[in-house]
């Protein structure tokens, strides 16, 4: 006990010494620390709602405990499994398609000889990153809506009957996948282009002189040079595998009940139940399960990677 007291005291005196020495630095960091404390750390206390029968009038801390009932209800109703499955499958699909497309774009753009074409195409491909998902939602609606959509216009001019895409759940994973890639391929390809242009151009020249054609140069120089970046990007995304991109799903699908089975991810489910005030406990359970599992996944992935190759570890 005494020993602990002594080290505690030592820590404290060290701390006060540091405060005295670097008072200004403490003051500079204080606003951000305070902001993150209040807006990120304190809300975590609300996680206990997942184990409570939440009532607004009693608040987070006053509501009664009800053990694991919220979790049991979430998974017995089948909702928990469905939204987990959807979230993981969508993330895997989006991860593979968007990164592959970005790598392809980066390789092609860096191989181009025409400077103008390079510059213009890269600028335009980066453009979708800058608009809000609300505008993307407008595009989706303009293309697929039954009466005036571009798709049905094209079908009509080809003499085919119009289709109501909004009552066909099966095609939505692909629509979402396409728009996800569309919005992010520019952003991601900027990262890969930076990795490729970081390669010493003498290596390419030497390879050319030695008779390596373009395919060999890509295969043996370009792809190995972006491999670490690809791995890092994949790891970052795997750590978020249980987090659905709420803004994307909400703006593309909206509150379209017909499509929920095919498109509901944890985040959209949680949001809807939150607004409808239906069973906050169960909603909090879904949110808790998502946060905790995400944390576990990212820690496990990082530890495993550290064992395989320290270079690739995220932290």
């Amino acid at each position: 006990m005494e020993r602990k007291g002594v080290t505690m005291g030592k820590h404290l005196s060290n701390f006060t010494k540091e405060v005295k020495k670097n008072k200004a630095l403490f003051i500079m960091a204080a606003p951000a620390v305070l902001l993150v404390l209040v807006f990120a750390y304190l809300p975590m206390s609300g996680l206990i709602v997942a184990f409570k029968n939440y009532r607004y009038d009693l608040g987070v801390f006053g509501s009664d405990w009800n053990g694991l009932a919220n979790f049991a209800y979430l998974f017995q109703s089948g909702t928990g499994w469905l939204i987990t499955k959807n979230t993981i499958l969508y993330n895997l699909l989006n991860l593979v398609t968007s990164q592959l497309l970005a790598v392809l774009i980066a390789i092609f753009i860096t191989e181009m000889n025409s400077k103008i074409f390079k510059k213009v195409s890269q600028s335009i491909i980066f453009l979708p990153y800058f608009i809000s998902w609300v505008i993307v939602g407008v595009f989706v609606y303009n293309i697929f809506n039954y009466e005036t959509g571009i798709l049905n216009n094209l079908l009509a001019s080809a003499g085919v009957d119009p289709v109501n895409v909004y009552s066909m759940p099966g095609v939505w994973p692909w629509i979402i996948c396409v728009f996800n890639s569309w919005k992010w391929c520019g952003y991601n390809s900027v990262i890969y282009i930076a990795a490729i242009t970081g390669v010493d151009s003498q290596i390419y020249e030497a390879a050319s002189i030695d008779g390596a054609n373009i395919f060999k140069r890509i295969r043996y120089i370009t792809i190995p040079s972006i491999k670490p970046t690809v791995v890092t990007m994949l790891l970052l995304q795997v750590g978020r595998i249980l987090r659905g991109d709420f803004e994307m799903f909400y703006q593309i699908v909206g509150n379209n009940g017909q499509l929920f089975d095919a498109t509901d991810v944890i985040d959209t489910y949680v949001f809807r139940s939150l607004l409808q005030n239906s069973n906050i406990g169960m909603t909090a359970a879904a949110s808790f399960y998502q946060s905790v599992l995400c944390f576990v996944i990212i820690m496990v992935v990082n530890t495993v990677i550290k064992h395989i190759d320290e270079e690739y570890a995220l932290f």
């Binding site: 807006f39 990120a40 304190l42 809300p43 975590m44 206390s45 609300g46 996680l47 709602v49 987070v60 750590g239 709420f246 985040d267 949680v270 949001f271 939150l274 906050i280 909603t283 909090a284 949110s287 808790f288 998502q290 946060s291 995400c294 944390f295 990212i298 820690m299």
Partner: peptide, 13 residues
């Protein structure tokens, strides 16, 4: 790495 998620944040805010 870890955050409270939508519900906690919403209720807390």
């Amino acid at each position: 790495l870890f955050n409270g998620g939508m519900v906690c944040t919403y209720i807390f805010y």
